[in-house]
Design a protein around this nucleic acid. Structure first.
Lengths: 201, 201
DNA sequence: GCAATTGTTGTATGATCGTTCAACAAGAAA
DNA sequence: TTTCTTGTTGAACGATCATACAACAATTGC
């Protein structure tokens, strides 16, 4: 008599939150690797090791997952800016942006993939605005603190706008021409343009 | 007797160069409107008023057309920087970047669409490098001239790198959140960050 | 006019796309 | 155990994708 094994489960059953998180991670990985054109149901589900019906079930469709991926792309940045309740000191903040954790092609590629889509997709544009405003306010606060102000004045807000744009552009160049925009050059660009306004950082 | 009209030609026959140019223009229009995901044979040929076989015939396939579109996207910028044999004076150059001709969402959207693709497409990356180096050299030359130098020194090159990144980032923000990055704010950002190095512009 | 050239058309093809949904099964509750 | 809830599967569907190519026709050269 062969002892009967309990049959191997055909799939693993996750909580809705867990499964959603795995699909988002897979979506981000696909965006980083192949850009927005690789963001397909097949690619994502294969990467996540899940079946094709799940994206519809958990996100209502591909667009829903894309919006969730956008929020997830912002998460590490906002977390770093908020994890102590307030943004870190500006020099620390900038240091962090050039660590291996933040300054990685695999991570930054995601922004390029998403920006091209946000520019022509009103729903994602609305989604973006919320995250951007939080992000901008936190950067402006860090700048104001660095100047020993308690609240950000218009000058701080304008400088935050400029710094955000500069970082975006650095990420673009780093992703499309790494030979020309090394981490050192990127850092030097930020130093050079900010020092006259904020002192040596 | 009805006088026999010469039959209406069923299509207009263009020279290879003309047709190629029309397809490139249609491709750019599609990128500006719908991003890289709208860059399909059907969309492009419909926009160009041509049949679907032509992209294969003139460019060998969609990838060939995309590379041609990338070169065409750079053309207005490089033309502006070279049309007098040398780049314009730096203040004029920056003024031009904020005219209606250059600072338009329809035009700048094209960059966002392409960047997301270049980041994950080695062939386009190689294509990009050529154009970028020309672009960078011209900007650096304009900066050197503005400082009364005959040739660009390392400081000029670094500042050119920073300025290019800043412009890229401004274009990104302007395309994905026009409410937050108006033309005036964009201009102010460039002024604020460059003035300490180049004097009032 | 006539033949050669070459730009153009549009269908056929097979692959892949996003979505839907009925059947299923894993785990929780009874 | 049995029932119930709900996460999961995967096939089916119609739409759309890029490409190939044989037939065609506008123009050029003669």
């Amino acid at each position: 008599m062969i002892p009967r094994q309990p049959p191997e489960p055909r799939f693993k059953r996750l909580s809705a939150d867990q499964r959603a998180a795995e699909l988002v991670q897979a979506g981000l990985a696909v965006l980083a690797t192949g850009g927005i054109t690789a963001f397909t149901i097949d690619n994502i589900c294969k990467r996540a090791g899940a079946s094709r019906g799940l994206i519809g079930h958990h996100f209502g469709g591909k667009d829903g997952l894309l919006a969730a991926c956008y929020a997830a792309a912002y998460a590490p940045l906002l977390l770093m800016l908020q994890d102590a309740g307030a943004p870190p000191a500006l020099p620390d903040l900038i240091d962090e942006l050039f660590t291996d954790r933040q300054f990685r092609r695999e991570g930054l590629n995601i922004w390029l993939a998403l920006w091209g889509e946000i520019a022509v997709n009103p729903r994602l544009q609305a989604e973006h605005l919320k995250h951007y405003r939080t992000y901008h306010r936190l950067i402006a606060t860090a700048i104001a603190r660095h100047r020993n102000r308690t609240a950000a004045d218009p000058e701080d807000l304008a400088l935050a706008t400029a710094l955000i744009a500069l970082l975006d552009g650095i990420w673009v160049e780093f992703c499309i021409a790494p030979q020309e925009m090394s981490r050192d050059r990127a850092r030097a660009a930020v130093q050079t343009l900010l020092t006259p306004h904020l002192g040596p950082i």
